[in-house]
Design a protein around this nucleic acid. Structure first.
Ligand SMILES: [Zn+2]
Length: 408
DNA sequence: GTTGCCGGGAT
DNA sequence: ATCCCGGCAAC
């Protein structure tokens, strides 16, 4: 369509040479209606929730003449959210009673955490919709049994090695799931990485039941006046409070949770292992290792100048971005130098970032606001080659992803 | 206004 | 997996 006949106005002498974009001009035909069915990851039982939305993208040339017609987005978001909550306990099959129960509990917890907007822990999402951002993330992370493998990055792939692509996620989801789980829940699950002793996962009153990074040592401090005892396990501190201060009986059985109010979690930053390489271990190390070998905490991201330096050692995706940048260029059609990083599938944990926040009440605000990622200032393919040579751009640029040719 | 690119949709 | 785009923040 749109023939743009090259403005070959035959000049007096020569036809003016003109480069014009003949890129895949007719690539996207205006097409049909797409039902936006928001199929959440594990529940797609949404019916009646569809919006027909004729959205065509006639893209005839470059930029400015694309047309859009409908506005959705907000309502869409709304919908999604609804989906989540409405189908929150759509279990699959019959289960034993306990399990069903467990599901409910889980569901309840999820709901709870959805509705109580997280106070601190402002994830680096947009200012406007912190909650949404958060919600999205946890959605991906928590609810999917085998979430969305390529969770973070739009392209990842080890050309040759690559264990199967769907593996990476499990630890991930499992991990993020943790907070929402009831201690005994998974029956035989040998879970419990260091950080979550049975007792502690019960405390949801605390704003953030989130995953902890491991360079932190978490302690629990009794807040009872004049006490100030510090124990290393939640169970311990609970017991302490129950017995010493509340005068309850010793066996934990029915902890009505009251003691939760009297202790607080503090984290000691034992961050010493710096080694950057160790982090190559495929999945987020914290989850796998039972003993939480402090993998490393990148307080500052070495590579990219702008980084999203987040003071907390649990910084957001910075580190991963780091190796991603150099290691996965699979999509890169040309200039693919080599593909460093021998193997080790990096499946990046990626989703954890928003989840990170560690502390709770005690956490003083070192700086809740991290600088937003600044734009890399170097010019990129787009600028260099210009719109009209779009097919000289690197693939990433063409896809509006982070440029891989001119990395900063 | 433009540029870089994240998040996510479509295929 | 690949391609594309909406939209946003940084310019
Ligand atoms: Zn590029």
């Amino acid at each position: 369509m749109v023939n743009l006949n090259p403005a070959v106005h035959v000049g007096p002498t020569v036809g003016r040479f003109c480069v014009f974009p003949h890129r895949n001009v007719m690539q996207r035909v205006p097409h049909k209606v797409s039902h936006i069915r928001v199929c959440m990851f594990w529940s797609q039982a949404v019916e009646g929730e569809r919006a027909a939305d004729g959205r065509r993208t006639g893209r005839s040339l470059e930029g400015p003449e694309r047309e859009r017609d409908h506005t959705r987005s907000v309502s869409l978001l709304e919908q999604k959210r609804k989906v989540v909550s409405s189908s929150i306990d759509v279990p699959h099959a019959r289960k034993s009673e306990e399990e069903v129960d467990m599901d409910k509990v889980t569901a309840a917890m999820v709901l709870t955490s959805l509705s109580t907007s997280p106070l601190v822990r402002s994830p680096p999402v947009k200012g406007t919709e912190g909650l949404n951002g958060w919600w999205k993330d946890s959605g991906g992370g928590c609810f999917t049994p085998s979430s969305y493998s390529s969770s973070g990055y739009w392209s990842w792939s080890g050309p040759s090695d690559q264990s199967n692509p769907s593996t990476p996620s499990p630890p991930l989801s499992a991990d993020s799931f943790k907070p929402f789980r009831t201690p005994g829940a998974n029956g035989p699950a040998p879970d419990d990485a260091i950080d979550d002793q049975d007792g502690s996962s019960l405390l949801f009153d605390e704003p953030i039941p989130r995953k902890r990074k491991n360079s932190m040592k978490v302690m629990f401090k009794c807040l009872w006046k004049n006490c100030g005892k510090v124990l290393s396990t939640a169970a311990g501190i609970q017991r302490h409070i129950r017995t010493i201060h509340l005068g309850r009986n010793w066996d934990s059985d029915c902890s009505d949770g009251e003691e939760d109010f009297y202790y607080s979690e503090i984290k000691l930053n034992t961050d010493s292992v710096a080694d950057g390489l160790s982090s190559l271990s495929p999945v987020s190390p914290s989850v796998l290792s039972p003993v939480a070998p402090p993998p490393r905490s990148p307080p500052t991201t070495p590579g990219r100048s702008h980084a999203h330096s987040n003071t907390t050692p649990l910084s957001r995706s910075a580190p991963s971005a780091l190796y991603l940048i150099h290691s996965d260029h699979a999509y890169q059609v040309r200039d693919t130098p080599t593909k460093t990083t021998s193997n080790s599938n990096f499946s990046i944990s990626w989703q954890s970032p928003p989840v990170t926040f560690t502390g709770n009440a005690l956490m003083y605000p070192p700086m809740s606001l991290l600088s937003r990622k600044s734009r890399g200032e170097g010019r990129k393919c787009r600028k260099v080659y210009g719109m009209e040579n779009r097919d000289m751009w690197c693939t990433a640029c063409r896809w509006k992803k982070a440029c891989q040719r001119f990395t900063d």
